[in-house]
Design a protein around this nucleic acid. Structure first.
Lengths: 227, 227
DNA sequence: GACTGATTCAAACGATTGATTAATTCTTGG
DNA sequence: CCAAGAATTAATCAATCGTTTGAATCAGTC
């Protein structure tokens, strides 16, 4: 593995990484050979060991590439200040709404157009989340933690009466519906008989927002008790 | 592959299938060799081809074994009659509660004690749901469809004012949080720093029930408007 | 143009893959 | 008891795996 890539090797490295994302996402780590990746990247398979130290090194670098590439909206929110004092509750509601919107927009990568690489990157992250490799679980945790903490902060402000465990359950339900939505897009399109679903992402975001606020137990979001 | 297994070969077949479930669940289809499975089953690796026609045949047989073994609670519910006439609403609420409980108990296989085989079976199904193999996707869909239809019927009774698309969104949120819970057990345990999570499955079931009923917009489930 | 280090390449490495073979053991009905 | 078929075994198959090798090619520097 070389120390720092030069301009000459940068293109090859990038092509290998992108081919790795596409192919790993499609078939999983064990379902792909480095020859297949190298062929897709129009590079020699020996370069995988040369540039990344091996197949696993390429896999790790692919994950890092995904994390760095996705200048997430969620990441910006995670850096927001804490909600305190009067108006904290309203701010937390707005923060939760923003989180759901940002997370959905990140999930769908809707602001960069339909990019197959983004699509594959999310599929690969989904694989990694379900069956985390020991070597990459730390990388994944480091990436997810700030988002989790920001969401948990919103929830804690909104439901100060709940225990930490109950708050984690709330967060799990909120994140779960969105991540499952992303993971099962293919099936959902089949069930609805609509290959373009969701045409109305705004409607889906609105649904997740309302469902989450009600599920969380926010009175303002509950239609029957609103008036 | 032999036509019908005799008594003599039944034990070996069973041992191979159970070893396959455990090992496939742990490392995925491509991450396991038949020698490793055979070693775990204390059998000869050539018997995989002899009894099941090959590695993929063993995998399919393992899935069938899971489906047959798991006399799912959800499957019983799916065969329940439709909710009609007076009391339909109460019945639908109870039906939804039962569905969530049954689905969670099936997901966690908690009613037969902590059986590593059941645990592995669910992990394998989770893998299969996220990245279904072409040969087994039909088997999986056939297994899942009745559960989806039963859930949709409950939702339709409870929220007759919603469009089909909105109802599908509701169902997606309800199933999503549970499936995500199952799929991301590994990450959840990392986040909580508790490898034994969830110790209190009842609490999780109660949470999903409350969250779903509130999210669905059922007034009775909303604490602030209950009294 | 010669030298240097980084990069790429074709070829081959040993190991392991799923599958096959042929011989052997086990089981069982006549 | 004994053929006959089923079940199991060790050994081996070709293919592929990730990796290594050594030479070729490239880009700069003196």
């Amino acid at each position: 593995m070389n120390a720092q890539p030069t301009d000459a090797s940068f293109d090859t490295r990038q092509r290998l990484i992108e081919a790795a994302i596409l192919t790993f996402a499609e078939k999983g780590f064990d379902g792909v050979g480095i020859r297949e990746i190298a062929l897709r990247a129009k590079a020699n398979s020996a370069l995988v060991t040369y540039h990344f130290g091996g197949k696993e090194g390429l896999y790790l670098e692919a994950l890092r590439y995904i994390f760095n590439r996705k200048a997430c909206h969620v990441a910006e929110l995670a850096a927001a200040p804490r909600f305190e004092g009067p108006g904290a509750r309203e701010a937390a509601i707005q923060g939760l709404k923003s989180h759901i919107r940002a997370f959905m927009e990140d999930l769908m990568a809707c602001d960069r157009g339909p990019d197959p690489l983004d699509e594959a990157a999310m599929a690969l992250m989904a694989r990694e989340m379900q069956a985390p490799r020991p070597v990459s679980s730390a990388l994944l945790m480091e990436q997810i933690r700030p988002h989790v903490e920001h969401l948990m902060h919103c929830l804690q402000v909104l439901r100060a009466d709940l225990t930490t465990d109950e708050l984690l359950n709330m967060g799990m339900s909120i994140q779960g519906q969105m991540l499952y939505f992303r993971n099962s897009l293919g099936i959902a399109r089949l069930i609805r008989g609509n290959p373009n679903y969701p045409e109305d992402l705004e409607g889906v975001i609105r649904h997740f927002t309302d469902f989450s606020l009600r599920g969380l137990g926010i009175p303002e979001a509950f239609p029957q008790s609103r008036n």
